[in-house]
Amino acid sequence: MTPNRTFLPSTPEVLARYPALAAAARRNQVWAAAWLIAALALTVFSFWSLGIAFGQIRSGLSQLGWLVAQMFPPSTGSHFPLLLHAMGETLAIAFLGTLIAATMAFPVSFLAARNTTPGTVIHFLARRCFDTIRGVDVLIWALVFVGVVGLGPFAGILAIAVSDAGTFGKLFSETLETTDRKPIDGVLSTGGSQLLAIRFALIPQVLPVMLSQLLYYFESNVRNATIIGIVGAGGIGLQLSEQIRTYDFDQVAFVIIMILVTVAAIDWVCGKLRFHVIGRST
């Protein structure tokens, strides 16, 4: 028997002395148990509803092991120039997509910002429009634009442009809403029009922030541009899905490494640029 047992009261004794504490503890336990059971039930239901068999997992895992083993050593499969070109295409898609998206979103974001919108109805419509565009994944846009303009990187550019126009619209309008009112009053008080107040007091405030956001989304679009090729919208993704289809996993590994290296390099460059933009503006 440990010594503290002799002078500490037992747990039931303590709980009997503080009924509120006991009730709270019990309530917490019941809630935690309820959440756990609900999560577990949903999990079991999901497995049943999706028809996942454990046999499939077992055989799949061994197949996955074989597949990963095939990846080593990674190989270019003697078409390195082709892969390089595809990677260039990927970067081009990301660059033009981001640029076009920002160009489209910039004017519209003024309609969606509370302090520059001409009316509440327009404000509401612009906001909903951005939300709807953002509700659709970039791969869906890619697939849609492949249907519109055919296979190739142009569809990818349009997909990223439209998908990110929604994101930029939201971000830009939020940036506009956080601006300082004082310089605007300053310009208006000299007899400048609303338009001139935007030109001289608002845009100088928001431009560096928007540039920084632009760079950040260029980074993320490089990632997006690596995958939209899977649905035929240009870039390295096409090569990747082709090689997986033909079971050339050594080349798959090489392409994945290429993607990782490119993404890391772009992140590094954009990080430097972003620092430069923000550093200069503060």
Partner: peptide, 26 residues
Amino acid sequence: FCRTVPDIVFALLFVAAFGLGPLPGI
């Protein structure tokens, strides 16, 4: 590694390993 490789690329690989269906997606 897990977050840099896009999920759709994992999905492609897992479809090759586990066959078509929701399991590779999950």
